[in-house]
Simulated scan of single mutants.
Amino acid sequence: GFNAVLHRRNEAKMQQVVRELRAQGKGKAGERDIRYFFADAAKAGHDFAKLVEPFGALHVTIVVHNVGGSDLSAARIDGRSEDYILGVVNKNSFFSLFLTRALLPQLRRAAQSGPVQVFFVGSLAGDIAPVRLPIYAASKGFLESLARGLDNDEQFLGVDDRPTGVRFGYLSVGAVHSDNHDAPMPPSLTTPTSARFARALVDAMGCGRRRVAPYWMHAVLSWLVELGPESVADAASAQEMRGLIARAEKDR
């Protein structure tokens, strides 16, 4: 039921999503307003002020930084190009950072009349740092620290030493079924569909916690990782990664 501003890099796929969302809203009071912009998050040099300028008059109350990802490959870090590594870091860390920087004045204005929540979508990989995904995992760790730091800034110093009402959080997320992934995992108890995960995320908004695992099974997995010895989590994730990499390379 929300009005939405969406971001993608592919116009054809964006138009398909917009049509689906507008079709869902037909016949309901106050049909949804769906707007969008395009940018390749893996690339540097965006004019972020220009990207958000068309939406400057909107009353934005929720931001979900869902951009991110990494390919599944047997390649080691020393077998990757500098451009590839920078692309992973830009997509998973810097794009969300600089987009947030451009949006903050607008979010602070919106917070004068009610709460504003910004979420960075993280990953259990940030806790485990699986084999062949060190850059991706480190980028998610960056987002968790960024969420905490920005939340502290807005609460304790804010503007003129007063809280702004803009809150930041980090989402601890496990596998989610999506056609955008290499070797997508089928839906299961531990791997919700995108729609099911989205409903869990909406339900979790406003819970007051800075680190949130919206989907309950991901919360259980996160708890088990923290509870057990690192060696067990490392070995289990390495075994799972072997299978995922094999599937991804077979599909290519």
Rank of each mutant, 00 (worst) to 15 (best):
residue 128 I to P: 01
residue 113 S to N: 13
residue 177 H to R: 13
residue 166 V to R: 01
residue 169 G to I: 00
residue 64 V to C: 03
residue 193 T to M: 07
residue 209 R to A: 13
residue 27 G to H: 02
residue 119 F to I: 04
residue 232 V to A: 15
residue 77 I to Y: 12
residue 40 D to H: 11
residue 122 G to Y: 04
residue 124 L to Q: 05
residue 133 L to W: 11
residue 80 R to I: 08
residue 38 F to R: 10
residue 73 S to A: 10
residue 119 F to Q: 03
residue 143 L to M: 06
residue 194 S to T: 07
residue 166 V to F: 00
residue 252 R to N: 07
residue 15 Q to C: 06
residue 14 M to G: 09
residue 20 E to R: 06
residue 247 R to L: 13
residue 128 I to M: 01
residue 143 L to D: 01
residue 227 L to S: 13
residue 154 E to R: 07
residue 38 F to V: 09
residue 95 F to W: 05
residue 248 A to I: 05
residue 197 F to W: 01
residue 225 V to H: 10
residue 104 L to P: 04
residue 111 A to T: 04
residue 228 G to R: 15
residue 103 L to T: 00
residue 202 V to C: 05
residue 32 R to Q: 09
residue 36 Y to V: 09
residue 114 G to R: 01
residue 115 P to D: 14
residue 9 R to H: 03
residue 11 E to P: 03
residue 21 L to K: 04
residue 150 L to S: 05
residue 201 L to W: 00
residue 105 P to S: 13
residue 143 L to T: 02
residue 94 F to E: 13
residue 1 G to R: 06
residue 196 R to S: 10
residue 229 P to E: 11
residue 103 L to A: 04
residue 244 L to E: 09
residue 186 P to S: 14
residue 171 L to G: 04
residue 154 E to I: 05
residue 35 R to E: 09
residue 24 Q to N: 10
residue 78 D to N: 10
residue 243 G to I: 13
residue 150 L to H: 06
residue 220 V to H: 07
residue 29 A to R: 15
residue 130 P to F: 10
residue 241 M to V: 04
residue 41 A to L: 07
residue 69 G to D: 04
residue 242 R to P: 10
residue 17 V to R: 12
residue 71 D to Q: 11
residue 212 V to L: 06
residue 139 S to F: 02
residue 212 V to K: 02
